[in-house]
Amino acid sequence: MQINIGSTERALRLILGVVLVLLPFLTALSMLWTWVSVIAGLVLVVTGVVRFCPLWAMLGICTAGRK
């Protein structure tokens, strides 16, 4: 697993992921949107922490500055 997420993208993923995980607790989302929000948030947080995105790897995208 090669790093393919740069520092700026990593910070954005972590911030947006935490917001999406907390969103259902701050608003009155339906059950479906609660699950969508939490799952999407967790995916963003995990990919931000490990600095690897499988989708970016399949598409050949690298924002880390090196390949």
Results as ranks from 00 to 15, higher is better:
Val43Asp: 00
Ala57Cys: 03
Val50Ser: 08
Val50Lys: 14
Pro24Ser: 09
Val49Tyr: 08
Gln2Gly: 06
Glu9Asn: 14
Thr63Arg: 12
Val49Arg: 09
Arg66Ile: 02
Ser7Cys: 10
Ile3Met: 09
Pro54Lys: 05
Arg13Lys: 12
Ile15Lys: 01
Trp33Arg: 03
Ile61Pro: 10
Ile3Gly: 02
Trp35Leu: 06
Leu32Cys: 03
Arg10Gly: 13
Leu14Pro: 10
Val46Lys: 10
Leu16Tyr: 04
Leu59Trp: 13
Leu22Gly: 09
Thr27Gly: 00
Ser7Arg: 15
Leu14Ile: 13
Leu12Trp: 14
Met1Lys: 12
Leu16Pro: 04
Arg51Thr: 01
Met58Gly: 13
Leu12His: 12
Leu55Tyr: 05
Met1Phe: 07
Glu9Ile: 10
Arg10Asn: 13
Val21Ser: 00
Leu42Gln: 01
Met58Ser: 15
Met58Asn: 14
Phe25Trp: 03
Ala57Phe: 01
Val43Ser: 00
Leu42Trp: 01
Ala57Pro: 05
Ser30Pro: 11
Arg13Thr: 12
Val38Cys: 01
Ile61Phe: 05
Pro54Asp: 02
Leu29Thr: 14
Leu59Lys: 15
Arg51Cys: 02
Val18Leu: 15
Ile39Ala: 11
Leu55Asp: 00
Trp33Lys: 05
Val50Cys: 12
Leu16His: 01
Leu22Ser: 08
Trp56Ser: 14
Ser30His: 05
Ala57Leu: 08
Arg51Glu: 03
Gly60Trp: 04
Leu59Gly: 12
Val43Lys: 02
Val38Trp: 00
Leu42Ser: 12
Met31Trp: 07
Leu44Tyr: 05
Trp56His: 15
Leu26Met: 11
Ser30Cys: 08
Val19Gly: 06
Val49Ile: 15
Ala40Cys: 15
Ala57Thr: 04
Arg13Trp: 10
Val36Ser: 02
Trp56Arg: 14
Ala64Glu: 00
Arg13His: 11
Pro24Ala: 06
Leu26Asp: 08
Pro24Ile: 11
Gly60Cys: 05
Thr47His: 04
Arg66Ala: 04
Leu22Ala: 11
Trp35Ser: 05
Val43Ala: 01
Ile5Ser: 08
Val50Asp: 06
Val19Gln: 06
Leu12Cys: 14
Val50Ile: 15
Asn4Phe: 04
Glu9His: 09
Gly65Ala: 07
Arg51Ala: 04
Gly65Pro: 07
Val36Arg: 04
Leu23Arg: 10
Gly17His: 10
Ser7Val: 10
Leu16Ser: 11
Ala64Ile: 00
Ile5Trp: 02
Val21Pro: 00
Ile3Lys: 15
Arg51Gly: 01
Leu23Ser: 12
Phe25Gln: 04
Ala11Leu: 14
Val38Lys: 01
Leu14Asn: 05
Gly17Ser: 07
Trp35Arg: 05
Ser30Val: 10
Leu23Thr: 15
Val45Asn: 11
Leu22His: 03
Thr27His: 00
Gly65Ser: 07
Leu26His: 07
Val18Asn: 13
Met1Tyr: 08
Ser37Cys: 06
Cys62Asn: 14
Leu14His: 08
Ala11Asn: 07
